[in-house]
Amino acid sequence: MKLDLVHDLQEAYRKTLDSMSRPGLISNIRDQASKVAMEINDFIPPAALVMVLMLFDTEVKFKVCSKREAEIAELINQLTYAKATEIESADFILVLKDADPEEFEQVINSACPGDLHDPHKAATIIVEADSVSNDRDLTLIGPGIEIESYISVKTNYSWVDLRAEKNSEYPLGIDLIFTDRDTNILCLPRTTQIVQEVAG
């Protein structure tokens, strides 16, 4: 079945909004992601592709971090008319699993954090993780969280300290959306603080 650009994307949006307003809440977009079974799946994982179709259009500038950046960027441009750009000026940055750890570090450091007049111009970074879960690895506090919530995000690169540094001057900062191969989505808006990291 083909992805319904009206209803499937609406459902995906509501799930994303739910996860963004309740950091730590993991939503699953399997129903939507399973419908983007096109040949482009080889390039972009389905969950990330749903995010791209949901949010990107001609007004958006994006950057892809991947070994196959050129192909993927061209594909996204063909699908959404969004324009590929450099890290510093991108509204959305897509970091795929095969990106270099150094590249990821560069993304976090150079991504636009907005400015005090326009903090909403900050970048949203969509990261393909190996897996996301509610295992007690990291403890989150902040708006949207009643007391605490717990997450575990498995990635090839460490991001917790980089993110904390980048988001140290609220309201400036970056917002993260993690996706994984089980089509889960986990959002970490800049307001969320990771208070403790349990080793191992």
């Binding site: 994303t16 909004l17 949010l55 509204d91 909403h120 949207g144 309201p171 917002d175 800049r190 307001t191």
Partner: peptide, 10 residues
Amino acid sequence: RRATLKAVAI
């Protein structure tokens, strides 16, 4: 939707 997600983040 893009504006709303940013609004929730700030």
